[in-house]
Amino acid sequence: MAGKIGVLALQGDVSEHIHAFQEAGSYLGIPLEIFPVRGADQIARLDALVIPGGESTTICRLIDKNSMRDAISHFSGGIFATCAGMVLLASSIIDDDRFRPLGLLDITVRRNAFGRQKDSFEADIAVRGLDTPFHAVFIRAPVAISAGTGTEVIAEYNGGIVGVRRGRALALAFHPELSRDRRIHIDFLKRLGIG
């Protein structure tokens, strides 16, 4: 089945996400339409919305400035969120009232949980559903310190939650779009019934 995937293009690594889904689509041999999304009216007709990495304070401000909060909150398709995207999907943020997250996932996150850029790292981590470790890229990454019942924890690192899933929404503290490995993207598409 073909699919329409929109990448929220307010700020961040939009082209990397587009490229990663193109690769996943060609691996599965399915035609995907993947494009940047900058307006609320584009969201409802998507099969999946990607919320990219970037600066969560900036992206959140632009979501509100562009009146996109409702459209994202009511979106019923798949959501693929990484790093800043995970922060934006959270229900609350620890020790930080700079912005109000979207609250689409019942998780409490800590921003920049591992420290500053010099503490950013790459590590092989176990991800539920993958039979071998995934090489994950953490850049000034957040962690979830708790997840509500019904929110499945799919990856942990050093005692912190770095991957969660609930229904069609997936949120990761790391950047699978920067890794060569496309297994997470492929699994996401399969679960949506695309491919």
Binding site: A9, L10, Q11, G12, D13, V14, S15, E16, G53, G54, E55, C83, A84, Q117, S120, F121, E122, V137, I139, R140, H175, L178
Partner: peptide, 11 residues
Amino acid sequence: LKRGFASMQKG
């Protein structure tokens, strides 16, 4: 990690 950080600044 270095280039990835720069990518997060885009836009």
